[in-house]
Every structure is written in C-alpha cells, then in structure tokens.
Amino acid sequence: MNASNTMICIENAAFAYGRQMVWQDLNLEVRKGDLMCLLGANGCGKTTLLNCLHGDLRLASGQISIEGTPIHTLPALDIARTIGVVFQEYATSFPYTVLDVVLMGRGPHLSMFSSPTREDRDIALSCLKNLGVLKLRDKKFTRISGGEKQLVLIARTLCQKPRIILMDEPTASLDFKNQALVLGMIRKLTDLGLTIIMTSHFPNHALLCADRVALMNDHTLVDSGDTRTIMTESNLKKTYDIDVRILSVNDPPNQEMIKFCMPSIRPDDLGDFSKDVC
C-alpha cells in the first residue's frame, strides 16, 4: 500500500478514564477516500475513539497519526482544518437559524476576533445547497426534523473544508427513509475524496455503504478490513455476543448480490421469567 495514501494511522493505542481501561492494543489504518464504519456494542468506546481522533481526548499509550503527523504534535487549529466532526448530541439553548449554524463551520478559518465575511456566507450557502437543504436556510435549527438536522450538521462540517470527517452515529434516531438519505449523502461525500469514519449501531448500514469496517468488543478491535471480508457471522458474533445470520440476495436492478444481517434471538435462550412478573 502506498504510505502517502494513509490518512489516519492508529498504533498500539490504549485509552483509559482514570484507572478504568476502555480499550487497548488498537491498531487501525484508514486510507484516503475510505468510508469506514465503526461497529460495536454500547459502551465499547466508539465515541471515545472518535474523540481521540480529533485530539479532544489523549491516549494513555500508543500513537495516532493524521497524514503521517502524530496528533499530539499538531496545533488544535490545524486539526480543526483537517478534521471535521459531526457530533451526536446537539445541545444549545438558543434557536439559531440553519444558516447561522452552518456558518459556525468557518470557525477554523477565521481569527478569534473576526466574524464571517460574505465569502464565508457563500461557502455556507453552497454547502447547504450541495446537501439539498438550501431551502432551510432561514428556518430555526431547533424546529427542523431529525434528518434535516443531520444534513445541516454535515453541511456545517463541509463548511470547515476538512479532509477527514468523523461522524458519531449519524443515523441515530432517524426514520427509515432519513437513514437511507443520510447514508447516501455520506457515501457521496467520499466521491469528493473525503475520508470518513462513522460509528453505527446498525451492521446493515456498514454492509450498505461502507468500504471498510472496524469491529470493537472486549476492549479492543475484533477485526478490521474490507467490508465484504470482515462482515462474517463469526466476527459479528464476537462483536455483539449474539448469533447473527448474514443473508445474501440477488438485487436485479443493480446486477449484484447484496448482503444483510439479522440477529437470531430465540426467546427460549433468554431464560424464564419468574412467576411474579405479572
């Protein structure tokens, strides 16, 4: 593999909150233009890993390199110009307009004491346009739907002009259609040469759109690599500690086999209720 193609390189990384180890022996490489999906159970440290990747948290040991430079040697401003983050929670008390929210993405390109110019505003508008949500520009961010919010936040991140985008569960709490819409939009972003790492709770989302997958469980990576080779029944069992069936069907319109997975949980396996439950 061409070394200059590596955007993110994680070597022997370990992270701990105080004495409580979250994960260790973590090795992962993300290439330019990859859409990598990070899967794992609740609380296995996916979000923690993302927060290490944009320098918000520091590893206990090991190293993360961004385009070949160790992240702890990069100034925060350089990281913000390279890496955009779409967070899962949005917690402001103030009903900013959509355009104001997207403009915030210009942060890394403006000094502490300046405000966005007309040029920044044009960039924000074209980012909204690219994500198909230009019509929302004057709406209150707090009043738009979950799917629209996610697209607006992605637009804000694009406004940052990053080369890497990290997304923490971009499809969480979205309905069926909006999940597909957001995933499709994320897929389109990689066509522009962006490198994307997203976490998800849906293995099917990885099968649907990711080039590469990293599976986390038991405080480390179960496996990582190309989606087709990594997403196996045995790997998913190791990741989620339940039986998983992977099914392949022919999808005539696209002339290809598509794979999807189903958990197989039988009520009998879950033990008996005690008599006093009802």
Partner: peptide, 12 residues
C-alpha cells in the same frame, strides 16, 4: 454556546 467540545472541534 455549542459546548466546549464542539467549539474546539470548529477551531475555537
């Protein structure tokens, strides 16, 4: 007003 973490991620 987006919170420390987001503000930092956007170059503040």
């Amino acid at each position: 007003s987006m919170g420390d973490r987001e503000a930092k991620a956007m170059g503040t």
